[in-house]
Amino acid sequence: MASRLNPYLVFEGDARQALEFYKEVFGGTLAVATYADLGGQSGTSDADKIMHGMLETPSGFTLMCADTPPGEEYSRGNAYSISLSGEDEAELRGYWEKLSADGTVTVPIEKQMWGDVFGMCQDRFGTAWMVNISGQQG
């Protein structure tokens, strides 16, 4: 799989509704995981919020989104990220190194609970980036 570049939007609790709307607009396949699905505490007010949602359309568009993580304040200015994803570890780590240089690492690039290697940073211009390397075995 080639590396992909796609938008990642953040919502203030209505990510599921937004994804369902975008599915009506663009068609495609929708996959969502809540905070409870991915190890968050069930029974809390955040348990049913979307930790990660992805719409893949017949036209080849990919739109990802989530609700604001528990404990973080929603800010419209932080309501987007650019996501790089794929299986080519060398390529994606190379992008990570360049994007995070002279920037701010908000989540170090390392293996995550869902099994992929993932990191988040803001580049030196303030653009938020997410890098996900799938299929990692180590």
Results as ranks from 00 to 15, higher is better:
M1K: 08
M1Q: 11
M1N: 09
A2L: 08
S3W: 00
L5V: 15
L5E: 01
N6M: 08
N6W: 04
P7V: 00
P7A: 03
P7Y: 05
Y8H: 15
Y8K: 02
Y8E: 06
V10L: 05
F11L: 07
G13Q: 02
G13S: 05
D14A: 06
Q17I: 04
Q17A: 15
F21C: 08
Y22T: 12
Y22M: 07
F26I: 10
F26R: 12
F26K: 13
G27K: 05
T34I: 01
T34Y: 10
Y35F: 15
D37K: 08
L38W: 11
L38V: 10
G39R: 12
G39M: 10
Q41Y: 04
S42W: 08
D46V: 00
A47D: 04
K49Q: 12
I50D: 03
H52P: 01
H52L: 11
H52S: 09
G53V: 05
G53R: 06
M54L: 09
M54D: 01
M54R: 14
L55W: 10
G60K: 02
G60L: 00
F61T: 11
F61A: 13
F61D: 09
F61L: 15
T62E: 09
L63E: 11
L63Y: 07
M64R: 10
D67Q: 02
T68M: 12
P69T: 03
E72M: 14
E73G: 13
Y74T: 04
Y74S: 01
S75W: 04
S75L: 10
S75A: 13
G77N: 13
G77P: 08
A79N: 06
Y80Q: 11
Y80W: 13
S81Q: 11
I82N: 06
L84V: 01
L84P: 12
E87P: 09
E89C: 08
E89F: 05
A90E: 15
E91M: 11
L99R: 04
L99T: 03
L99K: 00
S100Y: 01
S100H: 01
D102G: 12
G103A: 06
V105I: 15
T106M: 06
T106V: 07
V107S: 12
P108E: 10
I109D: 03
I109K: 05
E110C: 07
E110F: 02
E110A: 15
K111E: 04
Q112V: 14
M113E: 09
M113H: 14
W114P: 02
G115P: 02
D116R: 04
F118Q: 01
F118H: 07
F118V: 02
M120Q: 15
M120E: 15
C121K: 00
D123H: 05
D123V: 04
D123Q: 08
R124H: 14
R124T: 09
G126C: 07
G126Q: 03
G126R: 03
T127Y: 07
A128F: 13
W129K: 03
V131R: 01
V131S: 03
I133H: 00
S134C: 11
S134E: 13
G135W: 05
Q137G: 14
G138R: 14
